[in-house]
Protein backbone atom coordinates (compact mmCIF):
# COMPACT_ATOMS: atom_id res chain seq x y z
CA UNK A 1 0.00 0.00 0.00
CA UNK A 2 2.97 2.29 0.72
CA UNK A 3 4.05 2.25 -2.88
CA UNK A 4 0.59 2.94 -4.07
CA UNK A 5 0.42 6.08 -1.96
CA UNK A 6 3.68 7.47 -3.25
CA UNK A 7 2.59 6.63 -6.72
CA UNK A 8 -0.60 8.58 -6.48
CA UNK A 9 1.26 11.35 -4.68
CA UNK A 10 3.69 11.81 -7.53
CA UNK A 11 0.87 11.62 -10.00
CA UNK A 12 -0.89 14.30 -8.02
CA UNK A 13 2.13 16.57 -7.81
CA UNK A 14 3.09 16.26 -11.43
CA UNK A 15 -0.45 16.76 -12.61
CA UNK A 16 -0.68 19.86 -10.46
CA UNK A 17 2.43 21.27 -12.09
CA UNK A 18 1.24 20.38 -15.54
CA UNK A 19 -2.08 21.98 -14.86
CA UNK A 20 -0.39 25.36 -14.65
CA UNK A 21 0.84 25.23 -18.25
CA UNK A 22 -1.85 23.56 -20.30
CA UNK A 23 -0.91 25.62 -23.36
CA UNK A 24 2.65 24.32 -23.35
CA UNK A 25 1.47 20.77 -22.80
CA UNK A 26 -0.96 21.03 -25.67
CA UNK A 27 1.81 22.38 -27.84
CA UNK A 28 4.08 19.50 -26.87
CA UNK A 29 1.39 16.98 -27.77
CA UNK A 30 0.56 18.72 -31.04
CA UNK A 31 4.20 18.90 -32.12
CA UNK A 32 4.90 15.22 -31.46
CA UNK A 33 4.25 13.88 -34.97
CA UNK A 34 6.39 16.66 -36.43
CA UNK A 35 9.28 15.74 -34.16
CA UNK A 36 9.08 12.13 -35.33
CA UNK A 37 9.11 13.03 -39.01
CA UNK A 38 11.40 16.07 -38.88
CA UNK A 39 14.77 14.32 -39.41
CA UNK A 40 13.54 12.47 -42.48
CA UNK A 41 11.82 15.52 -43.94
CA UNK A 42 14.77 17.86 -43.35
CA UNK A 43 17.11 15.42 -45.03
CA UNK A 44 14.84 14.96 -48.02
CA UNK A 45 14.44 18.69 -48.47
CA UNK A 46 18.18 19.34 -48.13
CA UNK A 47 19.50 16.49 -50.27
CA UNK A 48 16.72 16.05 -52.82
CA UNK A 49 14.50 19.10 -53.05
CA UNK A 50 17.25 21.74 -52.82
CA UNK A 51 19.37 20.10 -55.56
CA UNK A 52 16.24 19.78 -57.67
CA UNK A 53 15.68 23.53 -57.42
CA UNK A 54 19.36 24.17 -58.07
CA UNK A 55 19.15 21.91 -61.13
CA UNK A 56 16.33 24.06 -62.50
CA UNK A 57 18.50 27.15 -62.22
CA UNK A 58 21.41 25.38 -63.96
CA UNK A 59 19.15 24.77 -66.93
CA UNK A 60 19.22 28.49 -67.60
CA UNK A 61 22.88 29.05 -66.74
CA UNK A 62 26.19 28.18 -68.27
CA UNK A 63 27.64 25.77 -65.73
CA UNK A 64 30.73 23.85 -66.75
CA UNK A 65 32.80 22.22 -64.07
CA UNK A 66 36.12 22.70 -65.84
CA UNK A 67 35.50 26.35 -66.64
CA UNK A 68 35.78 28.43 -63.47
CA UNK A 69 34.42 31.50 -65.28
CA UNK A 70 31.15 29.80 -66.15
CA UNK A 71 27.96 30.20 -64.13
CA UNK A 72 26.39 33.18 -65.96
CA UNK A 73 22.72 33.37 -66.88
CA UNK A 74 22.18 32.48 -70.53
CA UNK A 75 18.41 32.28 -70.77
CA UNK A 76 17.06 29.66 -73.11
CA UNK A 77 20.31 28.94 -74.96
CA UNK A 78 20.50 25.34 -73.72
CA UNK A 79 16.98 24.65 -74.89
CA UNK A 80 17.68 26.19 -78.30
CA UNK A 81 20.71 23.93 -78.56
CA UNK A 82 18.57 20.96 -77.59
CA UNK A 83 16.20 21.47 -80.51
CA UNK A 84 19.08 20.97 -82.93
CA UNK A 85 20.70 18.20 -80.91
CA UNK A 86 20.36 15.05 -83.02
CA UNK A 87 21.64 12.88 -80.19
CA UNK A 88 18.89 14.16 -77.94
CA UNK A 89 16.23 13.45 -80.55
CA UNK A 90 17.62 9.95 -80.94
CA UNK A 91 17.79 9.51 -77.18
CA UNK A 92 14.13 10.48 -76.90
CA UNK A 93 13.18 7.90 -79.51
CA UNK A 94 15.39 5.29 -77.85
CA UNK A 95 13.79 6.00 -74.47
CA UNK A 96 10.35 5.07 -75.80
CA UNK A 97 11.67 1.91 -77.38
CA UNK A 98 13.72 0.98 -74.30
CA UNK A 99 10.87 1.54 -71.83
CA UNK A 100 8.16 0.11 -74.07
CA UNK A 101 9.97 -3.10 -75.00
CA UNK A 102 11.36 -3.66 -71.50
CA UNK A 103 8.02 -3.22 -69.74
CA UNK A 104 6.09 -5.26 -72.29
CA UNK A 105 8.49 -8.20 -72.00
CA UNK A 106 8.92 -7.96 -68.23
CA UNK A 107 5.17 -7.85 -67.77
CA UNK A 108 4.39 -10.73 -70.13
CA UNK A 109 6.98 -13.07 -68.67
CA UNK A 110 6.29 -11.83 -65.15
CA UNK A 111 2.58 -12.61 -65.48
CA UNK A 112 3.28 -16.08 -66.84
CA UNK A 113 5.69 -16.75 -63.99
CA UNK A 114 3.18 -15.51 -61.43
CA UNK A 115 0.49 -17.79 -62.86
CA UNK A 116 2.91 -20.74 -62.79
CA UNK A 117 3.84 -20.05 -59.17
CA UNK A 118 0.26 -19.48 -58.08
CA UNK A 119 -0.32 -23.23 -58.39
CA UNK A 120 0.87 -25.23 -55.38
CA UNK A 121 3.57 -27.80 -56.12
CA UNK A 122 6.36 -29.55 -54.30
CA UNK A 123 9.39 -27.33 -53.77
CA UNK A 124 7.59 -24.10 -54.61
CA UNK A 125 9.45 -22.18 -51.90
CA UNK A 126 12.87 -23.02 -53.33
CA UNK A 127 11.77 -22.44 -56.91
CA UNK A 128 10.43 -19.05 -55.90
CA UNK A 129 13.72 -18.08 -54.28
CA UNK A 130 15.67 -19.20 -57.37
CA UNK A 131 13.58 -17.44 -60.00
CA UNK A 132 13.43 -14.24 -57.95
CA UNK A 133 17.19 -14.24 -57.41
CA UNK A 134 18.03 -11.95 -60.37
CA UNK A 135 16.18 -9.15 -58.60
CA UNK A 136 18.82 -9.30 -55.85
CA UNK A 137 21.72 -8.99 -58.27
CA UNK A 138 23.00 -5.39 -58.18
CA UNK A 139 22.02 -3.63 -61.40
CA UNK A 140 25.62 -2.79 -62.33
CA UNK A 141 26.55 -6.44 -61.99
CA UNK A 142 23.56 -7.53 -64.07
CA UNK A 143 24.75 -5.15 -66.75
CA UNK A 144 28.34 -6.34 -66.62
CA UNK A 145 27.30 -9.95 -66.51
CA UNK A 146 25.11 -9.64 -69.59
CA UNK A 147 27.75 -7.62 -71.37
CA UNK A 148 30.07 -10.55 -70.81
CA UNK A 149 27.42 -13.01 -71.96
CA UNK A 150 27.15 -11.06 -75.23
CA UNK A 151 30.92 -10.87 -75.61
CA UNK A 152 32.08 -13.48 -78.18
CA UNK A 153 35.40 -13.90 -76.38
CA UNK A 154 33.97 -15.34 -73.19
CA UNK A 155 30.19 -15.37 -73.60
CA UNK A 156 28.13 -18.14 -75.19
CA UNK A 157 25.33 -16.10 -76.73
CA UNK A 158 27.03 -14.95 -79.98
CA UNK A 159 28.07 -18.54 -80.65
CA UNK A 160 24.57 -19.84 -80.05
CA UNK A 161 23.04 -17.21 -82.32
CA UNK A 162 25.59 -18.11 -84.99
CA UNK A 163 24.96 -21.81 -84.58
CA UNK A 164 21.23 -21.24 -84.97
CA UNK A 165 21.90 -19.33 -88.14
CA UNK A 166 20.46 -16.10 -86.79
CA UNK A 167 23.69 -14.17 -87.31
CA UNK A 168 26.33 -14.38 -90.01
CA UNK A 169 29.23 -14.40 -87.59
CA UNK A 170 29.63 -14.72 -83.80
CA UNK A 171 29.79 -10.94 -83.23
CA UNK A 172 28.92 -8.86 -80.19
CA UNK A 173 25.36 -7.67 -80.47
CA UNK A 174 26.27 -4.66 -78.33
CA UNK A 175 28.48 -3.27 -81.09
CA UNK A 176 25.92 -3.79 -83.81
CA UNK A 177 24.25 -0.36 -84.33
CA UNK A 178 20.97 -1.89 -85.45
CA UNK A 179 20.45 -4.37 -82.65
CA UNK A 180 22.55 -3.02 -79.80
CA UNK A 181 19.50 -1.84 -77.84
CA UNK A 182 18.34 -5.43 -77.45
CA UNK A 183 21.35 -6.12 -75.22
CA UNK A 184 20.37 -3.81 -72.36
CA UNK A 185 16.71 -4.72 -72.91
CA UNK A 186 17.39 -8.42 -72.43
CA UNK A 187 19.48 -7.69 -69.34
CA UNK A 188 16.63 -5.51 -68.07
CA UNK A 189 14.04 -8.20 -68.71
CA UNK A 190 16.14 -10.78 -66.89
CA UNK A 191 16.56 -8.44 -63.98
CA UNK A 192 12.97 -7.10 -63.90
CA UNK A 193 10.79 -10.21 -64.36
CA UNK A 194 10.83 -10.93 -60.61
CA UNK A 195 9.43 -7.49 -59.83
CA UNK A 196 6.32 -8.08 -61.92
CA UNK A 197 6.05 -11.72 -60.89
CA UNK A 198 6.15 -10.90 -57.18
CA UNK A 199 3.65 -8.05 -57.45
CA UNK A 200 1.24 -10.05 -59.60
CA UNK A 201 1.63 -13.17 -57.47
CA UNK A 202 0.63 -11.17 -54.39
CA UNK A 203 -2.41 -9.88 -56.25
CA UNK A 204 -3.28 -13.39 -57.47
CA UNK A 205 -3.11 -14.79 -53.97
CA UNK A 206 -5.45 -12.08 -52.72
CA UNK A 207 -8.26 -13.38 -54.97
CA UNK A 208 -10.72 -15.31 -52.81
CA UNK A 209 -10.51 -19.06 -53.51
CA UNK A 210 -14.26 -19.60 -53.29
CA UNK A 211 -14.83 -17.40 -56.33
CA UNK A 212 -13.08 -20.03 -58.45
CA UNK A 213 -15.03 -22.79 -56.76
CA UNK A 214 -18.29 -20.96 -57.39
CA UNK A 215 -17.32 -20.42 -61.04
CA UNK A 216 -16.43 -24.10 -61.46
CA UNK A 217 -19.79 -25.10 -60.02
CA UNK A 218 -21.41 -22.68 -62.46
CA UNK A 219 -19.63 -24.59 -65.22
CA UNK A 220 -16.79 -22.23 -66.20
CA UNK A 221 -13.70 -23.85 -67.71
CA UNK A 222 -10.14 -22.83 -66.87
CA UNK A 223 -9.91 -20.19 -69.57
CA UNK A 224 -13.31 -18.72 -68.69
CA UNK A 225 -12.31 -18.57 -65.05
CA UNK A 226 -9.11 -16.74 -65.98
CA UNK A 227 -11.02 -14.28 -68.13
CA UNK A 228 -13.91 -13.58 -65.79
CA UNK A 229 -12.22 -13.75 -62.38
CA UNK A 230 -8.43 -13.50 -62.57
CA UNK A 231 -8.13 -10.71 -65.10
CA UNK A 232 -10.70 -8.33 -63.58
CA UNK A 233 -9.14 -8.83 -60.15
CA UNK A 234 -5.63 -8.25 -61.46
CA UNK A 235 -6.53 -5.31 -63.67
CA UNK A 236 -5.98 -2.53 -61.09
CA UNK A 237 -2.63 -4.01 -60.00
CA UNK A 238 -1.56 -4.47 -63.60
CA UNK A 239 -2.50 -0.92 -64.54
CA UNK A 240 -0.77 0.80 -61.63
CA UNK A 241 2.33 -1.41 -61.82
CA UNK A 242 2.80 -0.92 -65.54
CA UNK A 243 2.28 2.83 -65.35
CA UNK A 244 4.73 3.36 -62.50
CA UNK A 245 7.22 0.87 -63.83
CA UNK A 246 7.29 2.53 -67.25
CA UNK A 247 8.39 5.80 -65.66
CA UNK A 248 10.96 4.04 -63.52
CA UNK A 249 12.49 2.15 -66.43
CA UNK A 250 12.49 5.20 -68.68
CA UNK A 251 14.76 6.79 -66.09
CA UNK A 252 16.83 3.70 -65.39
CA UNK A 253 20.23 4.37 -66.91
CA UNK A 254 22.48 1.94 -64.98
CA UNK A 255 22.32 -0.94 -67.43
CA UNK A 256 22.96 1.24 -70.44
CA UNK A 257 25.82 3.14 -68.82
CA UNK A 258 27.43 -0.13 -67.81
CA UNK A 259 26.80 -2.16 -70.97
CA UNK A 260 27.18 0.26 -73.87
CA UNK A 261 27.69 3.74 -72.49
CA UNK A 262 25.11 4.85 -75.01
CA UNK A 263 27.08 3.54 -77.97
CA UNK A 264 27.63 2.46 -80.63
CA UNK A 265 27.16 5.92 -82.15
CA UNK A 266 24.52 6.85 -79.55
CA UNK A 267 22.30 4.01 -80.78
CA UNK A 268 21.50 2.97 -77.19
CA UNK A 269 21.53 6.42 -75.63
CA UNK A 270 18.36 7.12 -73.64
CA UNK A 271 17.54 10.51 -72.14
CA UNK A 272 18.59 9.52 -68.63
CA UNK A 273 21.93 8.10 -69.75
CA UNK A 274 22.44 11.17 -71.94
CA UNK A 275 21.98 13.42 -68.88
CA UNK A 276 24.51 11.34 -67.00
CA UNK A 277 26.96 11.41 -69.89
CA UNK A 278 26.71 15.19 -70.17
CA UNK A 279 27.27 15.63 -66.45
CA UNK A 280 29.78 12.88 -65.81
CA UNK A 281 31.91 12.79 -68.96
CA UNK A 282 31.58 16.27 -70.44
CA UNK A 283 31.08 17.92 -67.03
CA UNK A 284 28.57 20.27 -68.67
CA UNK A 285 26.16 20.64 -65.77
CA UNK A 286 24.14 23.39 -67.41
CA UNK A 287 23.29 21.38 -70.51
CA UNK A 288 22.68 18.23 -68.45
CA UNK A 289 20.19 20.12 -66.29
CA UNK A 290 18.41 21.52 -69.32
CA UNK A 291 17.87 17.98 -70.63
CA UNK A 292 16.72 16.95 -67.17
CA UNK A 293 14.11 19.71 -67.13
CA UNK A 294 12.78 18.55 -70.49
CA UNK A 295 12.64 14.99 -69.21
CA UNK A 296 10.74 16.10 -66.12
CA UNK A 297 8.23 18.03 -68.23
CA UNK A 298 7.69 14.95 -70.39
CA UNK A 299 7.19 12.77 -67.33
CA UNK A 300 4.71 15.22 -65.87
CA UNK A 301 2.81 15.23 -69.15
CA UNK A 302 2.75 11.42 -68.98
CA UNK A 303 1.47 11.52 -65.40
CA UNK A 304 -1.21 14.04 -66.34
CA UNK A 305 -2.26 11.88 -69.27
CA UNK A 306 -2.65 8.93 -66.94
CA UNK A 307 -4.71 10.91 -64.45
CA UNK A 308 -7.01 12.13 -67.23
CA UNK A 309 -7.27 8.66 -68.69
CA UNK A 310 -8.14 7.24 -65.30
CA UNK A 311 -10.84 9.85 -64.74
CA UNK A 312 -12.45 9.26 -68.11
CA UNK A 313 -12.37 5.51 -67.45
CA UNK A 314 -13.94 6.00 -64.02
CA UNK A 315 -16.67 8.14 -65.54
CA UNK A 316 -17.46 5.42 -68.04
CA UNK A 317 -17.64 2.82 -65.29
Amino acid sequence: MGVRNTVSMTAFVSSDRQRSTPVLRRLAVASEPYLYSAPAVILIVAVMLAPLALGFSYAFRDVKLLNPLSGGFIGLDHFRALIDDKTFARALKNTFFWAGASVALQFTFGLILALLLNRPFWGRGIVQALVFLPWAVPSFLSGLNWAWMFNPVIGPIPHWLFALGLTDAPDNILSDPHNAMWGPIIANVWWGIPFFAITLLAALQAIPRDLYEAASIDGANAFQRFKSITLPFLAPTIAITILLRTVWIANFADLIVVMTNGGPADRTQIVASYIFTQAFRRLDFGYASAIAVVLLVLLMAYALLIVLLRQSLLKKA
Binding site: V7, A11, S15, R19
Partner: peptide, 13 residues
Protein backbone atom coordinates in the same frame (compact mmCIF):
# COMPACT_ATOMS: atom_id res chain seq x y z
CA UNK B 1 -11.44 16.43 -8.14
CA UNK B 2 -8.52 17.12 -10.51
CA UNK B 3 -9.17 18.50 -13.96
CA UNK B 4 -7.53 16.04 -16.36
CA UNK B 5 -8.35 17.61 -19.74
CA UNK B 6 -4.72 18.33 -20.53
CA UNK B 7 -3.16 15.39 -18.73
CA UNK B 8 -1.53 12.55 -20.62
CA UNK B 9 -3.08 9.11 -20.06
CA UNK B 10 -0.06 8.14 -17.97
CA UNK B 11 -0.73 11.00 -15.54
CA UNK B 12 -4.39 10.21 -14.97
CA UNK B 13 -3.87 7.15 -12.79
Amino acid sequence: GIRVNDLQPKDRD
